[in-house]
């Protein structure tokens, strides 16, 4: 169909789609961040919201700004990265981890844990608390990685709004936490800061799942609600990266709606808990 035959609203949508593809390509070429294999509906939503909140007339205007104003790129990077995380999201996932996975981690003298795509770090501290309660934190090396340096800064600080603490405390208890959640932080004004000893063995580092490769052999990888943003091809690529990074007999924990079933390494894993999406890389 010729563009001129299309009704007005369909023409706007197809023009927008062209502009969005060009924008994503421009970001890749100019800044090296690759969003080309992200699910399109999500990317479109984020970009169009930014266009409208800035009062711009088109995605092309946004592209101009991104290409010519380096400082402005931080805004878009934040828009396109996955920043929403909470402590003990899906408490049952943590309870099963503690029950099914931690006892086996205890059989190693030293363990490495990788939080891939950790965003602002709430999950990293959730795990650190559990590792501590199980006596594993002192012999653990924890890598917490994200591609966005700005969210990593927040993760490193371990300071969160006090407004969420009530919810997190409830989640911690549902996750079968052993003590009082308030043992792990100090509240000051409208923030809480998590205890320094929790992050003693945590390294926060930039790592891009799309473009970077294996950096360590680890016993456990946690990557929750990141893969849902990727297309099938990229999901496969990232899962292959995880498979290469895990030791034989290592564990992988995904988000409740993520799955190894459609990936080409499915055969290399056994299912530890189908509902909580916890997998173990086979020894042979």
């Amino acid at each position: 169909m010729l563009a001129s035959d299309q009704p007005e609203n369909e023409r706007i949508i197809s023009t927008q789609n062209i502009e969005i593809e060009l924008l994503i390509e421009a970001i890749y070429q100019r800044y090296g961040y690759d969003f080309r294999s992200y699910n399109k509906a999500h990317v479109k939503r984020r970009i169009l919201h930014r266009v409208s909140s800035l009062g711009l007339n088109s995605v092309s205007e946004l592209q101009h700004k991104i290409l010519h104003e380096d400082d402005f790129f931080d805004v878009i990077l934040k828009d396109l990265s996955i920043n929403v995380t909470e402590m003990y999201r899906d408490p049952s996932f943590y309870a099963v981890m503690r029950k099914e996975v931690f006892p086996l981690l205890k059989t190693y003298p030293y363990i490495k844990v990788w939080h891939a795509g950790c965003a602002t770090g709430e999950e990293v501290y959730s795990f650190a608390i559990m590792l501590k309660e199980e006596g594993l934190l002192d012999r653990a090396q924890v890598y917490a990685t994200d591609f966005n340096p700005l969210v990593l800064e927040i993760a490193k600080k371990g300071i969160y709004p006090v407004s969420r603490i009530k919810e997190y405390t409830a989640n911690y208890q549902l996750a079968e936490g052993h003590y009082s959640f308030s043992d792990y932080y100090v509240a000051r004004y409208d923030s809480v800061i998590f205890n320094q000893d929790l992050k003693k063995n945590i390294v926060f580092a930039e790592h891009n799942l799309v473009t970077d490769s294996v950096f360590a052999e680890v016993n456990l990888i946690i990557c929750r609600n990141v893969l849902i943003y990727f297309n099938r091809e990229l999901q496969n690529k990232v899962i292959r990266l995880f498979t290469e990074s895990l030791i034989k007999g290592g564990y992988l924990g995904l988000g409740s709606k993520e799955n190894l079933m459609f990936t080409d390494v499915y055969e290399q894993y056994t299912v530890i808990d189908a509902k909580e999406k916890i997998y173990k890389k086979k020894v042979l």
Partner: peptide, 8 residues
């Protein structure tokens, strides 16, 4: 196809 996100 359907997609899911955990956005704010």
């Amino acid at each position: 196809t359907l997609s899911l996100t955990v956005d704010e």
